[in-house]
Design a protein around this nucleic acid. Structure first.
Lengths: 336, 336
DNA sequence: ATGTACTTTGACACCGGTGTCATAATGTCG
DNA sequence: CGACATTATGACACCGGTGTCAAAGTACAT
């Protein structure tokens, strides 16, 4: 079984390889008869153009890179799934690049990635989508990129995010409506812009409902389960103990739930617990966690789709979108 | 900033591009002086060979594909992480390809993937690593591949797995040593060979400790949390209720724990629960799950490393390895 | 000094596509 | 029907590397 290349197709069809190329790329100036003839040969020989050769000629790789550093496995797989959907739609492929670096090392590492892989573009997920440094670097290198879930203001680059502030506001309001006044809050990782957004949603809700903000009820986490466990200890040791805890993501909320249960506290009777993200764990534990669902796949899908559009036509208008977050109530929150 | 190619390097160094190519690939027959000179120019011009051009010339893509269909996000990310480690070591990249298909459609889909991406090899994870059909297809297509966590007997293809049977045996023995005799079992997905291995480990442990196997204590799951919830209902409704439940993975075990807790059963006092895999959820819930830890990253790392070795030298001996699984005891199991 | 074997080097074709441009074929109009 | 514009097609260079092979250079034995 010999390899089927553009040359064999051209020979078999009795035309030049350039004409075959024209048909392949739907270029104009091919007579209907010729086009028909070539297409028939495609079928007959089961011709598949070689993306590598095409990549060399066009200086493109048809590969999008996905940069991430997130402790949440479910978040990552959701991101990948959305990105893949968009990639496959346009015959691109996805290359994943987890990366724990920051600052200079990060830039260097990304530079390395770009030169060794010839990526056509990059999707940035938190916390990289919030790194001004990285964004500046990509701009100087002229690498197309799209930001996912970044609150960073930059209307010159593609951005799709969900409304973290609104989500946190709604969740806090939900707790308040249940009669809670002492609502502890566990913050996320400082490098993520979502951290501040969620925090201010929480603060604004308190403010608008006449509840005084109490710094003492705030713990600093970093989105990891482990940090949630530390914060949980800090919060459950408070006297008086708050009647509700709002953790900036579900893993940290799960850690609070675990410690509370270990301490024989009943959830939600003794204390209400809420998270953020609607990660699988939120419904895998008992009681299920009240949380905020974000359309992670959809965000990433849109971001990558726009990225690819921009790659194929750099004059495309820069896409920026904010999607809604949605409150999901489960058993972990109840009236005080 | 002009592009630095092999031509500019050659010109700048005053040698032919072929000589540059020799230095690049560490080929023999380059005088030390010339080699030195060229290497210096590499540094000076910050030359990075274009992998696409190289790929075209060598008919290689330096990309490994990873095929998976697994409900466990943590398993997937662990697989990816091990695969990436091996890939980066050899300057390969990883392309991920989740795929829900079976049978003919699967074959067709993989065929599509191969022709559109020119992958150099494939890593198969369960359940694909157990698909004789797919393996036969890849062999006819002459695509190098490696199997991860597959119990399928085939000494002509690379395979790295952990000892599922031994793990299940140890875990069951652990429950028996705690005095349990009515140990329910939740099976995994039928397409995964691990399912049968774990089941026979359980059965053998019972047998060797003089406990009669009871078909009525076995529920059919499929590794998903949801199937675990269904099986949990079935098992907890039994009269008399078993004193321990061994689920074939942690998600299903978590589902049993959730239902048990909902029903006000105390774990482990009223019923012991154990899982398999040591997924993050096993330590994120209370009580933490007794389980079996498998070296997923290490399995995949070795599999991909061997795959790449085989790609660069097809005469490499076929690597087959069984790694040990390890019992992790937590709070979810206790004496009867 | 000369022959022989081995090392070093470069010219050139090639991988499988795309871009440029000249030329051939066809269409339009006075 | 001839002049001209437009469409269709192919020859050829090129993308940035690698493989082949011949030629030049070097080492050593005679």
């Amino acid at each position: 079984m010999k390899k089927v290349t553009i040359n064999s197709v051209a020979e078999y069809a009795g035309v030049s390889k350039k004409t075959v190329s024209r048909v392949l790329n739907n270029e104009p100036n091919v007579s209907p008869a010729t086009r028909e003839k070539v297409l028939k040969v495609f079928k007959e020989l089961d011709y598949k153009p070689n993306p590598i050769a095409r990549g060399l000629a066009r200086n493109k790789s048809f590969i999008i890179g996905c940069l991430y550093d997130n402790p949440s496995k479910s978040y990552i797989t959701r991101v990948q799934s959305g990105a893949l959907e968009a990639c496959h739609k346009f015959n691109y492929n996805l290359l994943i690049h987890p990366c724990e670096l920051r600052g200079d090392e990060l830039i260097h590492n990304v530079d390395q990635l770009l030169t060794t892989s010839r990526l056509d573009g990059l999707v940035l997920t938190p916390p990289f989508s919030d790194s001004q440094e990285l964004i500046d670097f990509l701009k100087t290198q002229n690498i197309p990129f799209a930001r996912v879930a970044s609150a960073l203001e930059d209307d010159t680059s593609i951005s799709v995010r969900s409304n973290d502030e609104q989500g946190a506001y709604e969740l806090t309001e939900h707790l308040i409506s249940l009669g809670h006044k002492e609502i502890a809050f566990i913050k996320g990782h400082q490098d993520h812009s979502a951290t501040e957004k969620r925090f201010s949603g929480y603060q604004n809700a308190l403010l608008n409902h006449g509840i005084e903000f109490n710094e003492g009820l705030v713990a600093q986490g970093n989105f990891s389960y482990h940090s949630g466990a530390d914060s949980a200890k800090q919060i459950l040791d408070l006297e008086p103990m708050p009647t509700a805890v709002f953790a900036s993501n579900d893993y940290m909320a799960a850690a609070v739930l675990k410690l509370a249960t270990q301490r024989q506290l009943r959830v939600p009777e003794d204390i209400s617990i809420a998270g953020f993200d609607n990660a699988p764990i939120a419904r895998h534990i008992w009681p299920g966690l009240t949380t905020i669902a974000q359309p992670v796949e959809e965000m990433t899908r849109q971001a990558v789709e726009q990225l690819i559009l921009q790659i194929s036509d750099p004059s495309t208008e820069v896409y920026q979108k904010v999607l809604e977050a949605k409150l999901i109530t489960r058993e972990s929150t109840a009236a005080k």
